[in-house]
Design a protein around this nucleic acid. Structure first.
Lengths: 241, 241
DNA sequence: AGTGGCAAAATTGTCCAACAGTCCGATTAT
DNA sequence: ATAATCGGACTGTTGGACAATTTTGCCACT
């Protein structure tokens, strides 16, 4: 049951100011790249103290709407980077104690589709990124942390190659959740590394040759493997006690 | 190509403090519902000024990790609500100028799967929510804004009934993006309302009877309709000029 | 013992003033 | 023109202050 009436509590000045500035940004009246007035200036314009402005700004900064380039002082309007926002989503999910099965089902829904579109639309540069990620996995297969991060990079590259920002942004949080689960699995299931390697090759090849259907089905198999690997890991960790 | 050397900056005190507190929360050493120490106290513990603490807190608050119940003064540890975090995702996507096609492809990947699981796992209460949403659409079909919001509610209810938090959270941002597109469409394409009504009935029925496959395919048809509707709307808006 | 009410203490929201460090632009020196 | 220099403008952070409101501890009353 959703409430009929709600807060009206947004009162604090810093939140109101944050909202006003946010509206300006999403309404494009402040455009990406524009520099924000100085804090002192904003304080004057809004008729509040600089401390209040700072709290408001902090809010927009963590939303990724404001940011500054390395070593720059002035804040500028930024487009929220997928990494930033997705990390906040996966933190939320982690706090909600999602199970591996939930994660897996979501991956199963998204990744194959992403692979399919990637095969159809990938650019040469995106293919290169994919090849690099696969190569990195092969190269660092012995180092668990590096290998896991290479797997994540691979999925990210596929999603990026799909040419669909929504899919990419939906997929990004899954990666961050996958990492810890994958780390355990890859250490406990001996054949995991070889299977991942093989799957990445097949997927990359299909995307390279622009075979949408193959890319999709290979990715499906790849993700299915994760579930098998996870089950194997569970039994392994049971017998090892 | 990753850079060889990077950060070395980005350590404002308020950010460090935010990170420390965040780690405590994610690491469960501060548990959901716990009240945070007062700002003055935190300032003392961290050895910084209260203003600095406030900026740090603002950051965690916008991440949804801290919050306070209506009319409460003290901050307490909160679990990030899907609504909050998904709205930040969809704001990000909006700023990236996603196309309707991108949105549609993502919906096509997620919604049918959600419907499928919903049929398998929905509880009685979740079914009720679904029925209510469908009823609301029927009832308010004449009022565009209300109708659109009922459609969003329907999708949300399906996702919730899927019993998969990851799917639900991946789906939520799509809703918010859908709303504006749907509003235009529903006004310009006469048959849209009837088709939505019919689709909702079929989907609800399948979920009620726990027919996974039917739920999935009906949802697929439903989403496909959106694309047709969108194309119709484009031609309509062209001829109308 | 339990409950209600009330005043005191604590806490948040906001403000003011200040200072060190640093980035930027203009000016000056090479 | 390029390089070095200087002053001003900003940000990060601090200290202290005050009104409004919430929380708490206490006391009387049932």
């Amino acid at each position: 049951m959703t409430d009929l009436f709600v807060p009206l509590d947004d009162h604090p000045a810093y939140r109101q100011i944050a909202n006003v500035i946010e509206e300006r940004i999403v309404g494009r009246s402040l455009r990406t790249g524009d520099a924000l007035p100085s804090e002192t200036d904003l304080a004057r314009q809004f008729g509040v103290n600089r401390s209040t402005i700072r709290e408001a700004i902090r809010e927009l900064e963590t939303h990724g709407l404001l940011g500054r380039a390395r070593g720059e002082k002035r804040l500028r309007v930024t487009r929220p980077e997928p990494r930033r926002v997705s990390s906040s989503v996966s933190r939320a999910l982690a706090l909600h104690d999602v199970t591996f099965l939930e994660l897996w089902e979501a991956m199963m829904a998204i990744e194959p589709v992403a692979a399919q579109y990637a095969a159809a639309r990938r650019t040469a540069a995106q293919l290169q990124a994919l090849l690099r990620a696969a190569a990195r996995f092969r190269r660092e297969v012995a180092d668990t942390t590096a290998a896991v991060s290479a797997v994540v990079e691979f999925f990210t590259a596929v999603a990026a190659a799909s040419g669909n920002q929504v899919l990419a942004l939906s997929q990004a949080p899954l990666n961050l959740l996958l990492a810890p689960a994958l780390t355990r699995m890859i250490d406990r299931v001996p054949q995991a590394r070889a299977r991942i390697h093989e799957a990445q090759d097949n997927i990359t090849e299909a995307i390279k040759l622009r075979r949408s259907e193959q890319a999709r089905t290979w990715m499906e198999k790849h993700i299915r493997d994760f579930k098998r690997g996870h089950e194997l890991e569970l039994t392994a960790s049971l017998t090892e006690i």
